[in-house]
Nucleic acid binder design. Structure first.
Lengths: 187, 187
DNA sequence: AAGTGACTTATACAAGTGTCTAAATTTGAA
DNA sequence: TTCAAATTTAGACACTTGTATAAGTCACTT
């Protein structure tokens, strides 16, 4: 990402960021990520290519920014060390809510993008990384005889696997059932 | 993949496939996947671009073929339904051997390719998919109250996580210790 | 209302991508 | 050994990519 997201964006930058990400999500509802070109994104957004490259390295970078905007709500900053086993469920539920809120968008995107494709891959990876960072800080693994990172990564793999099962492979599953799956897989 | 791997390749096709994959692996020991171009691969392999595109869709396709040649030895075809919990360990060990046999190659590749990059991602995904297919057939999950696919995917995620830990993140770990990790993570 | 710093834009460039054609070559079977 | 089928190749095409430069415009502060 060329643009620094840690500082507050000016109104103009906000407009630009939003235009590009909106266009990307629209295009993803129409065709596969592989067939979307930076030129096309710029034409539709009504910005010159130079502006695109002021903000993003490439289209992968833009799509990651799209996931970032979806994930904002997780409020990673509000992570605190939680001792109980329920910590995992808490963060699972936060992601569940986000995915559920955006399920129509996800459905549209899945019409044009296969599981095995780059797009779905980037989507899952984005949230896996987010969860990894959280779980390394938030969960107490002292009762396991394992490196912390390994355990944290295993938890985020599992959380994302269940969410993928529900929202991407579209296996109708209640949130309660999902909790049971998590419990079985991690104990 | 444009070329049909299920039929026996002619001697010429074998030569071509080997030349391209050898060049790719060599280049990966010298620079990052992102900086390798099809043009370069063809120049070094001494084949015209048209030939490259006779065999592969793009460089991603070629690198997948490279992993395919490494994985040949797993002998996926010799999969049989195994009831015992040891099935998982058996297949873990097969992959462990392959990774161990190629650890120098992996080390070289890791000099130029980050974890988060496309290359390592494609590597892990390739073997994850391979393991998924095997585990869906080979392991008996009847004692768990879960969809088979979910359980199989969870197992392959976990197997690959531990192998990644050892061979890509290079955390020195004995094979015995790895077995303990697997046991803790999956029970 | 002016000035400074941040953002936008026009334009050009060298390089890469994937596809296509038609000619040349190789291959395996008869 | 010959011939038809399959594969390889040269070359061209339209298009995309990422970078760089210099000029333009905007918007916030004082």
């Amino acid at each position: 990402m060329k643009y620094d997201l840690s500082k507050k964006p000016t109104r103009g930058a906000q407009r630009t960021l939003e235009a590009f990400s909106k266009t990307m999500l629209e295009l993803l509802s129409q065709k596969s990520f592989e067939h979307i070109s930076v030129n096309e994104i710029c034409d539709i957004s009504n910005f010159p290519r130079a502006t695109f490259y002021n903000y993003f390295d490439d289209k992968y970078d833009l799509v990651d920014y799209c996931w970032y905007t979806l994930a904002k709500e997780i409020q990673v900053d509000k992570v605190t060390k939680v001792e109980s086993d329920r910590a995992l469920i808490v963060y699972f539920d936060r992601l569940y809510d986000i995915f559920d809120k955006n399920k129509h968008l996800l459905n549209n995107i899945l019409q044009n993008n296969q599981f095995s494709g780059q797009l779905v891959n980037s989507f899952i990876n984005y949230f896996k990384n987010t969860m990894q960072k959280i779980f390394r800080k938030a969960i107490d693994y002292s009762k396991y005889d394992l490196p912390v990172e390994l355990m944290a990564d295993h938890c985020s793999d599992t959380v994302l696997l269940v969410l993928e099962w529900i929202f991407l492979r579209q296996q109708t599953t209640t949130q309660e059932q999902a909790h049971k799956y998590l419990d079985t897989l991690l104990n």
